[in-house]
């Protein structure tokens, strides 16, 4: 059996306060909660206030190449941002990239609920309007392997520069230090 975790986004209830971004970026700071920066958040609210678009989206998997075609969605007469529903950290846009390193940011479910210390992710906890809710269930299948943040970042560097160059760089640096 594998555990499936779902963050339900009710965009109709979102009022655009971005508390989810605040809480997420604080949790992922090092040391924990030591800094806030929505730009480092792994959940972002895509908003176009006058067009009544308030859409929280969690960072998903990183992709090294953008899709063959981008897309836009118009729903109930509202045109959403290009690829606005997509969760990928993608070369086509700045979303879900660390502002300093450019490395991908993705939701790690608060590092798997802070190893059991949390009963829900911080973004859900700080969404007092219930635009975000959380559920867990079990399904047939095996637990997939999750990469930690460091491995995940290195993987993206390898995709961009090639394994050889990354290894060379790490070797050079380690000799210098």
């Amino acid at each position: 059996m594998r555990k499936i975790t779902v963050i339900n986004i009710n965009a109709d209830k979102c009022m655009g306060c971005r508390a989810c971004e605040v809480a997420c970026s604080a949790f992922h700071a090092s040391p924990k909660y030591s800094s806030t920066n929505p730009e480092r958040s792994r959940i972002r609210v895509s908003y176009d206030q006058l067009n009544d678009i308030y859409l929280p989206v969690m960072g998903g998997e990183y992709t090294s190449a953008e899709c063959n075609a981008r897309y836009t969605i118009t729903l109930n007469d509202k045109k959403y941002e290009e690829c606005g529903f997509c969760r990928a950290s993608c070369p086509s846009r700045d979303l879900f990239k660390d502002p300093d390193s450019g490395l991908p940011l993705r939701c790690d479910l608060c590092d798997n609920l802070d190893n059991g210390a949390l009963d829900e992710p911080w973004c859900v906890k700080w969404c007092l309007n219930d635009a975000l809710t959380f559920e867990e269930r079990e399904e047939e299948g095996e637990e997939p392997e999750m990469l930690d943040d460091l491995e995940y970042g290195v993987r993206s560097l390898i995709d961009t520069h090639g394994l050889e160059k990354v290894v060379d760089a790490v070797t050079r640096i380690s000799k210098r230090e």
Binding site: A26, A29, Y33, S34, S35, T36, N37, E39, R40, P99
Partner: peptide, 15 residues
């Protein structure tokens, strides 16, 4: 538009 951090001195207690 800003992309820098704002720090707090005593993170855990502050939160």
């Amino acid at each position: 538009r800003g992309k820098k951090d704002i720090n707090v001195a005593h993170p855990e207690e502050f939160m």
